[in-house]
Design a protein around this nucleic acid. Structure first.
Lengths: 203, 203
DNA sequence: TGACTGACAGATATTGAAATCTGTCAGTCA
DNA sequence: TGACTGACAGATTTCAATATCTGTCAGTCA
């Protein structure tokens, strides 16, 4: 009848919210659908009315989390600085976002790492989103003449691949190495040189 | 008395040999020092006469295995081709060595991955060896004028970092992706451009 | 005499019975 | 009438008793 303040109606969003909290508190190996239902005060059968399976629920929670990483980077992509500075800023923001999460809540980070291992498709989507962001910056750079590569898309993919050590969660343990920033600067200066290099009289 | 054919004397080498075989057959979680001793027909107490601990034994076996990867690359480093070709050949050989091992014996590869997780120092030594090999090639390239980077050592480290996705075992699962070679070519062409780029009239 | 054994203490791993979980669906109730 | 419940089958996980392992060392024996 009235459609406001209907706290009692079970929505997919509420389930995702609760699942996130349950995962945070119990970790991926202990969190159960029954826990999620209990947190919401419903039977676990009700949960299955809104999500197809436990795997689908985990996927959806992971997807949300990944969006909270990639969405804020949009602001950097749409920034006004020259493309080279903007690309560096975007990389810094990406790395900072990841590192902040490992440092602040290492266990939660590990939890999402475990979810990601079972959700290749979701992760692929996340990576594609990020590569697309980088590609848009590089395309700007090509247009303005700052970058001299042919294809923004493949350049973006290569930049992303070449910097894997600095943003791929598999390498998270290395992010607290003292030399990590120096290492990134080294890689960055090669990549930046490659992107900006004048086509050059052969060889 | 006589020092030939003394099959009965227990040496550190024989222990490493046996430990390798036990690890191959039982995997890292099941392999025990008792198994190694049994394979050698001695008591496990004897094994402790030659190795300080199970961890030290694992480290030594891992180190051997890593040497079997890095040693053959020396031939490439000492090759006669121009540095850029040689560096590429070295990278190809490194990647081929790793991929061959995952493909032929995935479980054994996983076993060594697990050993490596507990042997940071040994792994660090292996990486240093590899980076040093790359640095020697790059130094040649600088001498011959083919490369224009300042410091061979740090350039080598950056090249190694930038190609992590293609040789770091953490990414082994990605090595069977159909696009992996294309991805490497993309990264390589950026790195090659960066190394060979003429210092360029600024910006 | 010194390489090797084997029993030991404490730590770690295995095992299988009992408990819990996932996903379904006929039935309730607002 | 349709969102929700709760009991169920089969799969998975837990837990505590039991067995095995690691590292040591006094003692054997060649």
């Amino acid at each position: 009848m009235d459609d406001a303040a209907q706290d009692s109606v079970l929505t997919r969003d509420k389930i995702l919210e609760a699942a996130e909290e349950v995962l945070r508190r119990f970790g991926p190996s202990k969190a159960t659908v029954v826990d999620v239902a209990r947190a919401l005060g419903v039977s676990h059968g009700s949960v299955y009315r809104h999500v197809a399976s436990k795997a689908a629920l985990r996927d959806a929670v992971l997807e949300r989390w990944l969006h909270r990483i990639s969405d804020p980077l949009e602001a950097v992509v749409r920034g006004r600085e020259p493309a080279p500075e903007r690309l560096r800023k975007w990389m810094d923001a990406l790395m900072a976002a990841k590192r902040r999460r490992v440092l602040k809540e290492p266990e939660l980070f590990a939890t999402y790492g475990i979810l990601a291992a079972d959700a290749r498709e979701v992760v692929k989507g996340h990576v594609d989103t990020l590569v697309d962001q980088a590609a848009r910056i590089i395309a700007d750079g090509i247009k303005s003449g700052a970058f001299s590569v042919k294809d923004a898309g493949s350049a973006a993919r290569s930049v992303f691949d070449a910097t894997a050590r600095f943003h791929n969660p598999r390498h998270a343990a290395e992010w607290s190495d003292p030399g990590i920033d120096t290492a990134f600067d080294g890689v960055w200066s090669l990549l930046n040189a490659a992107l900006t290099a004048r086509p050059a009289g052969k060889r």
